[in-house]
Simulated assay, not measured.
Amino acid sequence: MTNRVDITPAAAAVVSKLIARHGALIFHQSGGCCDGSAPMCYPRGEFHLGSQDVYLGDIADTPFYMSAFQFEYWQHTHLTIDVEAGRGSGFSVEATEGVRFLTRSRLFSDAELLALAPLAP
């Protein structure tokens, strides 16, 4: 099976640190607006998923979602969540750490598309 979303070791280390501080987390790929298209990280329970949010998988023991509208554009794209120094969104929990999560993407190969796991309902 091919994952739709993965995480770099550096970003996973930040997630581990954030889980120790905030408890269980959730990622939601922002679709634009104030913070651009950034992966947003929230304490689980503080971000309310809608019926149109699509679950893409878990990264670093943390579920990752995006809106169905955005998924229509990104469904052929593999996402890798990374981290870099800098100021990210004030809404995402890593903002106080002096780092920001970012999404790196590439198109799936034909073989990867065939091996994608079906989306969970």
Score class of each variant (00 low, 15 high):
residue 2 T to N: 14
residue 3 N to E: 15
residue 4 R to Y: 08
residue 4 R to L: 07
residue 5 V to K: 10
residue 5 V to C: 12
residue 6 D to W: 04
residue 7 I to H: 08
residue 7 I to A: 05
residue 9 P to L: 13
residue 10 A to Y: 10
residue 12 A to I: 09
residue 14 V to A: 09
residue 16 S to A: 15
residue 16 S to L: 11
residue 19 I to S: 10
residue 24 A to T: 13
residue 26 I to N: 04
residue 29 Q to A: 11
residue 29 Q to M: 15
residue 31 G to N: 06
residue 32 G to S: 03
residue 33 C to H: 11
residue 36 G to S: 11
residue 38 A to Y: 03
residue 39 P to F: 11
residue 41 C to A: 13
residue 41 C to L: 15
residue 42 Y to Q: 07
residue 47 F to S: 00
residue 47 F to M: 06
residue 48 H to N: 05
residue 51 S to F: 01
residue 52 Q to F: 09
residue 53 D to M: 06
residue 53 D to L: 07
residue 59 I to S: 05
residue 61 D to V: 00
residue 63 P to Y: 08
residue 66 M to H: 02
residue 68 A to S: 15
residue 73 Y to P: 00
residue 73 Y to V: 01
residue 76 H to T: 06
residue 81 I to K: 06
residue 83 V to K: 10
residue 86 G to P: 01
residue 86 G to D: 03
residue 88 G to Q: 04
residue 90 G to K: 00
residue 90 G to E: 10
residue 91 F to Q: 06
residue 93 V to S: 00
residue 93 V to E: 00
residue 98 G to I: 02
residue 102 L to W: 03
residue 102 L to E: 01
residue 103 T to M: 08
residue 105 S to L: 03
residue 106 R to Y: 05
residue 106 R to C: 09
residue 108 F to W: 08
residue 110 D to E: 15
residue 111 A to C: 00
residue 114 L to W: 00
residue 114 L to N: 14
residue 117 A to P: 00
residue 118 P to M: 12
residue 121 P to D: 15
residue 121 P to T: 10
